[in-house]
């Protein structure tokens, strides 16, 4: 009955190694996303961005990290101490957990051993991602509440109501994909899209809805209601400083990285690209293709952020509940009807 415990030691070691590598890559990408964000923002605004720390400012994330660690670790007097410290940890943990089901490639041949480039291929991968995305709210809510500051609380409530509203449309757009592919496993989905049979060609509306919801879930502009520097002085992390603030910001970039990975896998063929076999270079071609797609989407996320102004809160809710959810339901119904028609 207990299938999960029947694995041998070498298998566990291999998975631990993979988790370690993915964790390191995730952290590096998150760190360099901050640099990329600033550089891209600068370039879009006719500036040059950070260029002092190292060549082209490439050491800027290191400098930022050192700064974060060196700052005074301050806890407000009337804050709920335990939860105040716990909140960034929860947020970070949830952000890192999501990457476990993403297939980074087929198999990697290293020193004669075949390594499966996916931490775990559970047959409900998409639901697992939805589950952890829905848990991401807690870090924000607890952090905002434990700060004992009304602006933090406003920010937390805005952020969490935004996230639960957009989760619905996100889930509905994914249901259409699931109906079309007939699987919940991300690995199977990626395999089905070999060559140029990408899901986005069959589900353009679903992709659009999912993309908008992903922007909202990551709390990024034009949906950065949670932060609102202008009216909420930073939102839920107003009271946070030093590395605790760093954790929040870092986790947001990890969220962005993971959502880009999910978008690439679910809609844009994952590790597949027409003409490039993912098993080339001993299996390294798959990750290379997938990561180029991920970087492209990270760039699009940033590009959108530095182009569009922020939504007003009622516009945001209007778009979520009266715009995207009905659209996602229509998309779902259409997909169902068409699959039924084609299947019979």
């Amino acid at each position: 009955m207990m299938y999960i415990l029947l694995f041998d030691f070498a298998f566990i070691l291999q998975k631990m190694g993979l988790i370690g590598v993915i964790f390191l890559i995730t952290l590096t990408i998150a760190a360099y996303s901050t640099y990329g964000e600033r550089k891209i923002a600068a370039f879009l605004q006719d500036r040059i961005g950070p260029d002092r720390a190292g060549p082209f400012g490439l050491l800027q994330p290191v400098a930022d990290g050192v700064k974060m660690f060196m700052k005074e670790d301050f806890i407000p007097a009337n804050a709920n101490k335990g939860l105040f410290i716990l909140a960034p940890g929860i947020f970070m943990f949830v952000a890192c957990m999501t990457s476990a089901v993403i297939p980074w490639g087929t198999t990697l041949t290293l020193f004669g051993a075949n390594i499966d480039l996916q931490v775990t291929d559970i047959n409900i991968g998409i639901l697992y991602i939805m589950g952890f995305v829905s848990l991401g709210v807690y870090g924000i809510m607890i952090g905002g509440w434990a700060s004992n500051n009304k602006y933090s609380l406003y920010g937390a409530i805005r952020a969490s109501s935004q996230m639960i509203s957009y989760e619905l449309a996100m889930g509905l757009s994914l249901i259409a994909i699931v109906m079309m592919t007939g699987t919940l496993s991300l690995r199977t989905m990626a395999e089905q899209q070999s060559g140029f049979q990408w899901n986005v060609l069959y589900q353009p509306l679903g992709f659009l809805i999912f993309f908008i919801c992903a922007l909202a879930e990551c709390n990024r502009a034009p949906f950065d209601m949670a932060e609102c520097e202008t009216e909420l002085i930073g939102g839920y992390h107003t009271e946070y400083g030093s590395m605790k603030l760093g954790f929040f910001l870092f986790a947001e970039y990890i969220n962005m990285f993971v959502s880009c990975a999910v978008i690439s896998t679910v809609f844009f063929g994952g590790y597949n690209f027409p003409g490039l076999d993912p098993s080339w270079l001993g299996g390294l071609m798959g990750p290379i293709v997938l990561f180029s797609k991920i970087f492209f989407f990270i760039f699009v996320f940033m590009w959108i952020r530095w182009t569009l102004p922020r939504f007003r809160y009622d516009q945001l809710m209007h778009l979520g509940w009266k715009g995207l959810i009905p659209l996602a339901i229509v998309n779902m119904l259409l997909t169902g009807a068409i699959t039924l028609w084609l299947g019979k």
């Binding site: 590009w303 959108i304 182009t307």
Partner: peptide, 11 residues
Amino acid sequence: MATTLKHMIRL
């Protein structure tokens, strides 16, 4: 977005 991209390319 086209406008911002134009600025980026120009830079």
